[in-house]
């Protein structure tokens, strides 16, 4: 294991169950090229402030996490991958549950929301951390889920990108 220095903010708490999976939604679709997923899909976006979102497997299923994301986020999820809490710690970071942190009135937070802590990392270290998460996620493989049913559809539409 790697020693990790963590500075938690009010309402944040570490996720300590090493076997628990953090589900990562792959979005937008451009972060998939054929069968390959970009390592950047596992790190923070410009707007994430070093806190890329994951979902806790003890609280939601991968399908529930994907459905919530597709229904509420600005871009629908294309696929779900996962890394365990132990793998994140092994990679040099931690999983932080921020469900008790205050949010603005016009914001909503996904059930089981947590994040992998990239805060304050210089770019080379960010690149390393996301690559390590990526390799763990690829070792586990894509977690089978279906796209969110479209309004009025009785069944999920097949995901043509698979």
């Amino acid at each position: 294991m790697t020693d990790v220095q963590v500075e938690l903010k009010e309402g944040e708490q570490l996720v300590g169950e090493l076997e628990e999976i953090g589900y990562r939604q792959i979005t937008p679709h451009l972060l998939r090229d054929g069968r390959q997923v970009a390592t950047s899909a596992f790190g923070p976006s410009t707007a994430d402030a070093g806190k890329p979102s994951y979902s806790r497997s003890l609280i939601v299923t991968a399908q529930e996490a994907r459905d919530w994301h597709s229904a509420n986020a600005r871009k629908p999820s294309e696929a779900v991958y996962g890394v365990s809490v132990g793998e994140v710690i092994q990679s040099g970071s931690v999983v932080v549950d921020d469900s008790d942190c205050p949010i603005a009135n016009d914001e909503s937070r996904a059930p089981g929301h947590c994040f992998v802590d990239f805060r304050g990392l210089p770019k080379p270290e960010e690149r390393e951390l996301r690559a390590k998460l990526y390799m763990h996620a690829m070792e586990r493989g894509e977690i089978p889920t279906e796209p969110l049913n479209q309004d009025g559809a009785l069944f999920s539409l097949p995901d043509s990108s698979h």
Binding site: L30, D33, Q36, V37, A38, T39, S40, A131, M135, M138
Partner: peptide, 22 residues
């Protein structure tokens, strides 16, 4: 794999569970 980056660049990447080169 050829990907756009949020910073306005392009990422060329060979990735697997064993190695990442970019």
């Amino acid at each position: 794999g050829v990907f756009p980056t949020p910073e306005g660049g392009i990422l060329l990447e060979w990735g697997s569970s064993q190695r990442v080169v970019s």
